[in-house]
Amino acid sequence: MPGMAHLRGEKYQDIMLIAGASAEVPKGLGVEVNFLADNIDLLTNKVRKANADIVEGPVIRPWNVKELVVRDIF
């Protein structure tokens, strides 16, 4: 039976994560999740308080987007 998680950041910022087995993609590989946030610095502070593994950022990219990269430990 698959597990499911519903994540909500702000209004219209919903992600549904559904666990399932696949022979083609090993567990933990091939997943990328992107969030759009009005205030990336506020999000960064929340991530730091949660002791998440920040890989990079926040950093302003050449395409004029401020990004934060966080590693999923699961």
Score class of each variant (00 low, 15 high):
residue 17 L to A: 11
residue 35 F to R: 07
residue 27 K to M: 11
residue 48 R to E: 10
residue 22 S to C: 07
residue 46 K to A: 03
residue 38 D to M: 05
residue 72 D to H: 14
residue 40 I to Y: 01
residue 28 G to I: 06
residue 57 G to C: 06
residue 22 S to K: 05
residue 62 P to N: 06
residue 69 V to W: 08
residue 2 P to C: 02
residue 27 K to N: 15
residue 1 M to V: 07
residue 30 G to T: 09
residue 28 G to W: 00
residue 37 A to C: 13
residue 58 P to N: 10
residue 13 Q to N: 14
residue 67 E to K: 07
residue 32 E to D: 14
residue 51 N to L: 00
residue 32 E to R: 11
residue 65 V to G: 09
residue 46 K to W: 00
residue 19 A to E: 11
residue 25 V to A: 11
residue 38 D to G: 09
residue 71 R to E: 02
residue 42 L to K: 15
residue 28 G to Y: 01
residue 17 L to E: 08
residue 59 V to P: 05
residue 11 K to S: 09
residue 20 G to P: 06
residue 13 Q to V: 07
residue 37 A to W: 02
residue 74 F to H: 15
residue 14 D to R: 08
residue 18 I to K: 12
residue 69 V to T: 13
residue 20 G to L: 01
residue 61 R to C: 05
residue 27 K to W: 07
residue 11 K to W: 00
residue 33 V to T: 15
residue 31 V to Y: 01
residue 6 H to I: 15
residue 1 M to N: 07
residue 21 A to Y: 08
residue 24 E to A: 11
residue 61 R to G: 03
residue 15 I to S: 09
residue 15 I to Y: 10
residue 31 V to I: 12
residue 39 N to T: 10
residue 37 A to V: 14
residue 16 M to F: 10
residue 57 G to I: 05
residue 46 K to D: 00
residue 23 A to C: 06
residue 27 K to C: 15
residue 68 L to N: 04
residue 64 N to G: 12
residue 28 G to E: 08
residue 21 A to T: 10
residue 20 G to D: 05
residue 19 A to V: 08
residue 30 G to A: 04
residue 52 A to D: 00
residue 42 L to N: 15
residue 22 S to Y: 00
residue 35 F to D: 01
